[in-house]
Amino acid sequence: MNVFRLTGDLSHLAAIIILLLKIWKSRSCAGISGKSQILFAIVFTTRYLDLLTSFISLYNTSMKLIYVGCAYATVYLIYVKFRATYDGNHDSFRVEFLIVPVGGLAVLINHSFAPLEILWTFSIYLESVAILPQLFMISKTGEAETITTHYLFCLGLYRALYLFNWVWRFYFEGFFDMIAIVAGLVQTVLYCDFFYLYVTKVLKGKKLSLPA
């Protein structure tokens, strides 16, 4: 555990809580992609199956349980409790275009051809692109609520901090996981455009809106 890893995890946790609170307090999931949230629920479910097979630490186990629990709670709020506010017409990204290639890639490129390991790999690849339906939705509507941009910023920051964590681990522990690193790089790059808008607009007190 190093400072980048810990702040990365906390940033990830902050993103998840911000989104849950936003939906709960406003009693609305307008502007939120339910598809991205379903993908994140799949990501956590397939990655944390090792909860059943191995114990790493109390920190590790409790964070995994919190992430999984919050992911399903978010999906429940969007598709059940506040379904009437869900903007399905703008959430039109075709997720099969992500799931199918990612599944194929996980079977082809993995650390070991074992069921749990393939599912872990699948979750890593899927996480790197799971935000695309959300970014697609924002590009379609041309705007995002400020609180939604805080959510996205924390989520992108988490992956950027993990990149520093991997540099740290490579130098001090000789550890590197090529699958996680490449997928993490892809994931971080996807946020770059958004980071730019966040810094130039949202942090200056303006709402995030895209030119028509």
Binding site: R5, I56, M63, K64, S112, A114, E117, N165, D177
Partner: peptide, 10 residues
């Protein structure tokens, strides 16, 4: 036996 892989990160 296949090598045991540990994923200690979240």
């Amino acid at each position: 036996h296949a090598l045991e892989i540990h994923h200690d990160e979240l």
